[in-house]
Amino acid sequence: MLMASPKVAIVDYALGNLYSIKHACERVGLESMITSSPSEIMLADGVLLPGMGAFGEAMQTLHKLDLVTVLRDYAASGRPLIGVCLGIQLLLTESYEFGNHKGLGIIDGVVEPLDHPHEGERDLKIPQVGWNQLHAARSWFGTPLEGIPENEYMYFVHSFVPKPQDVNAVLATTNYGGVEFCSSIQQKNIFACLFHPERSGIQGLKIYKNIASQLHKSLEGIE
């Protein structure tokens, strides 16, 4: 029997390179559409929430596009919701980026600035731009990080870090200039990463591959 192919929605709210994400989906055989339509998002088998830039402005745009409730409802539906880069930050309750901003509140926790990363007497640059390593905070088995080697490098661009309230939500941590932070979250149907798996070479693509195969499995389960 021919199985239905899962389709993911890449949420388009202006900032960030959505095309890199689309290319990565394409590469692992995952059908995707770039959209800001609430109905298309609600009907998708999985939702990717990307993003770059400022937290406050991103939330403003999501409100303007009527996507805040849509994303919360989607998260509550139990289908996979995936946050990337700014996306992981938006999932949390609030951010202290240039004042206080309410986030989507899908995961309890806050977003804090990278606090004075340094190596010896050399202050490191903010944002962190570049490759850094993932360390397992708990088992990656059955998560999108399954099969990624411990200490693998991923590509980061960020000035802020997520801090989930529930430490069990932390899937991976990363260290930048002595600052240890949460670089990936998994809680029920929510997976998110602070880095860009779509720009992290073959190992990053593996994360998309895992997401694709989980989506295929869950669709087969329904049929």
Binding site: N17, Y19, S20, H23, A24, E26, R27, Y155, H196, E198, R199, S200, G201, I202, G204, L205
Partner: peptide, 28 residues
């Protein structure tokens, strides 16, 4: 952009926000 999955920076002759948008859409 379709065959390399690392960040790609593109420059040369970009004059406006629209020029930049075109390059980003191409995959930069």
């Amino acid at each position: 952009a379709r065959e390399t999955f690392i960040p790609l920076c593109v420059g040369g002759g970009l004059r406006s926000v629209d020029d930049i948008r075109v390059v980003l859409r191409a995959g930069a």
